[in-house]
Design a protein around this nucleic acid. Structure first.
Length: 500
RNA sequence: CGGAGUUUAGCGCAGUUUGGUAGCGCGCCUGCCUUGGGAGCAGGAGGUCACAGGUUCAAAUCCUGUAACUCCGACCA
């Protein structure tokens, strides 16, 4: 365990290194390089995003964490509505018989389902599952609602909590109860449903890359990794700073599987009764974990400006005798930024030193800090400090409303660029399992490999390296011709990685 | 679900070997003083030592069991 007080090595460091080292032991966050898991837990705890709950595997979203989710829902919801979807809400409880209608589906979820079996001490006639996802109950309702081709397409989204009793949980990334949205659509033709599946993957990609500054790999899941009951599952995959993958969002083409199970039929123009084709797609609070693990550093969180609940924190500085003057100017700067549409807050608490606040808001990931003190006022300027690079600049008070939005957008882009460069650097093609193992375990990254299409080869890779297939990318950097496992001709080029 | 570790004040920990008054740092409260990278001084509050049993004159400490958390595996959209 690193003990800051006993570590004298920093005495020999240069001024700059000395500063950095000093900062290191001021805060209570384990460095990423020392223990990434500890870093993650330290960061989300110290940044006050969540707390553990008395219920195993369930966390409390504290206001700062929930505010992040609210920002995410706002941006996603806007995109869903722009693409013609409407929100609805279906029950939390699902009758047991519903699950049994789709064999693959029930087998996929059975191990994680909690059941309500009695109420008021009396046993229920039929057990009720607490939903792990809502395909079945929505499928049933759709069978009631859809009569004619004129009822199609049916484009509905639900914001909800779902429960999957996970054996191993990790805050945000894998919790027994989590929040998400699930879209469920029904279409007259397979082509239209497939187009919807791709469109929603595009929506997710746009959201994650542009709002969260997280570059993603788009592709199709292999059969063993696809959603239970789906014809095809598509995903966007992101690389965390420890080189592991997180599935950031999924979109499923369900074909007519659920339509057949739930008798969802419509009368077409030709007066024939036909099954509909359905899709479902989801993104969950897991994305918050990804956001933290992609951008965070040893000083804590780092939030991309477009999603950050607070984009600029203003810290007024100065002793009592200049305080009134500084606060007056702070009010003006605040109003100016607010009017420019920037999410801005002021921390004028007198009992905490400016230095304390600098560290605190860096830990909390606020993208831009604005310092305003008496010396600044004399020069009619303010100091702006970027969270991502630490760069300082002074800006005339008259130019703030122009300069701040520009800086925020530069930060947004630069965070994306940095994450992309990191992923590219940690990704490489491999030609045998030993190499694949080397890439995912030692170098800690993504391995691009040829795959013959045989489940046994995929299972063997997982067995020997701990890596799972992430997806078959739409745009692989190159195409590989032999299977990394058996050496036969490759049917697909696949990304493999250790995953959360 | 297996293996290992942890559980003592809000947080981080010492105390457990060898049973005998509940401790430290940070934070918190009051006051003074301070403010450009986690300020200082003084005073103060705060704990069924995870939980349940057991041994003992006496248990944070020894024994048994349970739970939660962390890590590593297994499982898993």
């Amino acid at each position: 365990m690193y003990n800051a007080l006993q570590d004298r090595s920093w005495l020999d460091l240069t001024q700059e290194e000395h500063m950095a080292k000093e900062k290191e032991f001021v805060k209570e966050i384990t460095p990423q390089s020392e223990d990434f898991s500890r870093w993650y837990i330290d960061t989300i705890t110290k940044a006050d995003l969540m707390d553990y709950s008395p219920v195993r595997g369930c966390i409390v979203f504290k206001p700062d964490g929930y505010e992040l989710w609210e920002a995410i829902t706002r941006e996603l919801d806007r995109r869903f509505k722009e693409t013609g979807h409407r929100n609805a809400y279906f029950p939390l409880f699902i009758p047991e018989s519903f699950f049994e209608k789709e064999k693959e589906h029930v087998e996929g979820f059975n191990p994680e389902l909690p059941w309500v079996t009695e109420v008021g001490g009396e046993k229920l006639e039929e057990r009720l599952a607490i939903r792990p996802t809502s395909e079945t109950i929505i499928g049933y309702m759709y069978s009631q609602w859809i009569q004619s081709y004129r009822d199609l397409p049916l484009l509905i989204n639900q914001w909800a909590n779902v429960v999957r009793w996970e054996k191993r949980t990790l805050p945000f990334l894998r919790t027994s109860e989590f929040l998400w949205q699930e879209g469920h659509t029904a279409h007259a033709t397979a082509e239209e449903a497939e187009a919807e599946t791709r469109q929603m993957l595009d929506v997710y990609t746009d959201f994650v890359e542009n709002e969260l500054s997280i570059p993603v790999i788009r592709g199709q899941k292999t059969p063993s990794e696809k959603f239970p009951g789906a014809v095809a599952t598509f995903s966007i995959e992101a690389m965390m700073k420890d080189g592991k993958a997180i599935q950031a969002g999924t979109s499923h083409y369900l074909g007519d599987n659920f339509a057949r199970s739930f008798e969802i039929k419509f009368l077409d123009r030709d007066n024939e009764r036909k099954y509909v084709y359905t899709t479902s797609w989801g993104m969950s609070t897991r994305i918050i974990g990804a956001l933290i693990m992609v951008h965070g550093d040893d000083r804590g969180l780092q939030l991309p400006p477009r999603i950050a609940p607070t984009q600029v924190i203003i810290i007024p500085i100065g002793p009592a005798k200049t305080r009134e003057r500084v606060l007056l100017a702070t009010d003006e700067v605040y109003a100016q930024l607010k009017a420019a549409g920037i999410r801005v807050r002021v921390d004028a608490r007198e009992d905490l030193s400016p230095g304390w606040k600098f560290n605190e808001y860096e830990m909390r990931g606020i993208p831009l800090r604005l310092e305003l003190g008496p010396r600044d006022l004399d020069a009619n300027q303010a100091v702006l400090v970027r969270r991502d690079t630490g760069e300082k600049e002074t800006v005339s008070l008259d130019d703030l409303a122009q300069r701040v939005p520009v800086l925020l957008s530069e930060i947004q882009q630069s965070m994306y660029d940095r994450a992309l460069a990191f992923r590219v650097e940690r990704s490489e093609p491999v030609s045998d399992i030993a190499q694949l193992h080397e890439v995912v375990r030692t170098k800690r990254g993504f391995a691009l490999a040829g795959w013959c299409g045989d489940r046994a080869c995929e299972a063997k890779i997982k067995e020997e390296t701990g890596a799972t297939s992430r997806n078959i990318p739409f745009d692989p950097p190159q195409t590989l011709s032999t299977c990394v496992s058996c050496g036969k001709a490759a049917a697909h080029t696949v990304w493999f990685a250790r995953a959360y």
